[in-house]
Design a protein around this nucleic acid. Structure first.
Lengths: 197, 197, 197, 197
DNA sequence: CATGAATGAGGGTTCATTCAT
DNA sequence: GATGAATGAACCCTCATTCAT
């Protein structure tokens, strides 16, 4: 039923972007297939040529968001040469997300709230964090090998870094004032040093 | 419109608890007034005697959740005598929430996801975190006066503690395995020492 | 089931007046028993002590309106001594209704619109117009006996006077400007002379 | 929102006719969207493809009724050649409405009763009567130019003719017996001569 | 008598999904 | 492929009416 992979990836992407737009502007529970179609300048029917149903489309939206973010982080960090530069690149990339790509956290938050009621979403989100955690562990491993940081329990550190980032990001979401946001952002970067140095 | 305050607080509470049950079992966007009524063993109509509409009821559910949690934290901490005991009481209370009152974080997460689209929810959540932040600052202040901890920037510390708790809690939500949860929990308590000692 | 007549006529009247107020301010289809109760400063339940149900109450409201108007017209005309004075009294009374008792026509219009779907209302309204028609015929009869007017077909004249009054009154209802209303009013009185002189 | 003009005027008309049927058989306040759908042999949802909401649909029903009547009157009168024929055509057309198109007055009455509570309806009805009034003035003007009738105040005459028609029509509505209806009808035509000759 | 909480059918409306064109 | 009209279940909410207190 679902179209063969590679058939019309442009249309699929067009629909996914429209769905993201709807999530960001209206919230996951507050838009219809018609809203997506309107945002994509398409008819409602065509969406069902590219996606089995609404749920399937929404799952693909999350996968797309995650894969974009993973790619961004990995490319930035891989381009840096040693532990210090890699960690700096990672920190800067993550720190800039709320301002430069605020959609990501909004979308993540929307799906996170659905995770307890949807095993598939839960699995996808879980895997994303595991991947990111392992990636951070990789960076820390380099630091250890270079003798720049002391040996720490990898799992713990990765968990803490991730949760810290998430916590700050969500906290950030509900703060209106620019000044407060900047402060939280600085705090966010500062705290990493406490962990790892 | 809504019944005089004090009129039938039992029914109001009964409905609020039923709504909480629905949020926890089905998720904020996935239950109807009829579901709440069924959960409360009431007819649908009666809900509108006690609440103006569904949105109002859901706002009251959040307020109720927050006020319960605030009360629990404050009472536990106030019962402790000095900085060390107070901080220990705080840490233990917060650390136990995910296991002893898992509903709280699920409910919070559901509302947090709606905050970007609803100014009232945003305000209520904001105020809750502000209150909790000030409360933590108060504990730290005591520690500083007693000479137990070094002077630290209060705002930062409070923010970090809060966001750490939130981040871990949500991370916790998507972890299935008991063993992983326990570990995260231990990490959570451990990290506080890094901040404040 | 319905309370014995004479039991609490004050309460009945209080409720009827409240219902009239609701009809005039909101329109027959747009208010509830609760609205009536609120307007009468009573509880909803008590209305069912004095009226079998909403329909019965609304029938009684119409009867009350009609009996008031009939009484007013008859008393005014009966107080006049001869044909000329009687007809003058009638014309003035009717002409003043839209301004002095605008509720009457609004209430009448509301019920008239229901007449095609409710035999009881139809019968009550029919009887009211028949009574008024016969009353006008009586005045004309006096004029004929006094030799003041020429013999005319009574039924026709009465019908025409009534319908003219009704038509102008409803036309009047939808005219906003005071100046227009005054003009229509003057036209209304003027036309009677054409009929009968 | 509403479909492009010209898209599916047949469906729109189908729904409007079904709504008219409901008004005539049940009365404006006593039918639901579901009733309309059933009368039109459609599902409930489709109505919202063609009309924004129930109120909008009902407004369009009134507009449709008025435009039909205006067209009928104008076409009939325009086809006549001089004043006498035009006025005769007008009188006959109007006199026949209650028997040949009894729905019109029932529908009009239903909306008239809502006019005091709905500015839009009031405006539409007002405009209809103004148009019709001006049209009658036009006929009288011709009669005056042809020297057939004496000069009369146009506004007054038009108002009186209209209100007479309305009054008789509504009076007619509540009369059951056929004989009575016929008599009123004859009276209606007769009265015009008194006005204008 | 009086109250107002409770019931549940029914109203207007939305929306995921299908399918004839 | 693409369209958007059509379906009908489900949603939020109102309200006439009842009845325990």
């Amino acid at each position: 039923m679902s179209p063969k992979i590679g058939m019309e990836p442009i249309r699929r992407q067009q629909i996914i972007e429209a769905a993201k737009h709807c999530i960001v502007t209206k919230g996951l529970p507050h838009f219809s297939i018609k809203d997506i179609a309107k945002a994509a300048n398409l008819s409602t029917g065509v969406i069902y040529h590219y996606f089995e149903n609404k749920d399937d489309l929404l799952v693909d939206v999350l996968k797309d968001s995650f894969s974009n973010t993973e790619k961004l982080v990995k490319e930035t960090v891989d381009a840096a040469s040693n532990y210090n530069n890699k960690m700096k690149a990672y920190l800067e990339t993550v720190a800039k997300v709320p301002d430069e790509n605020p959609d990501f956290y909004i979308i993540l938050l929307n799906y996170l709230a659905q995770a307890p009621y949807n095993e598939e979403l839960k699995r996808i989100i879980s895997r994303f964090f595991q991947n990111l955690g392992r990636f951070i562990e990789g960076i820390l491993q380099i630091g250890y090998k270079e003798g720049v940081i002391k040996k720490i329990e990898k799992g713990t550190a990765a968990n803490l870094i991730l949760s810290q980032a998430m916590g700050l990001a969500f906290y950030y979401l509900i703060s209106n004032e620019k000044i407060n946001k900047d402060k939280i952002n600085r705090d966010f970067v500062e705290i990493f040093k406490k962990y790892i140095e």
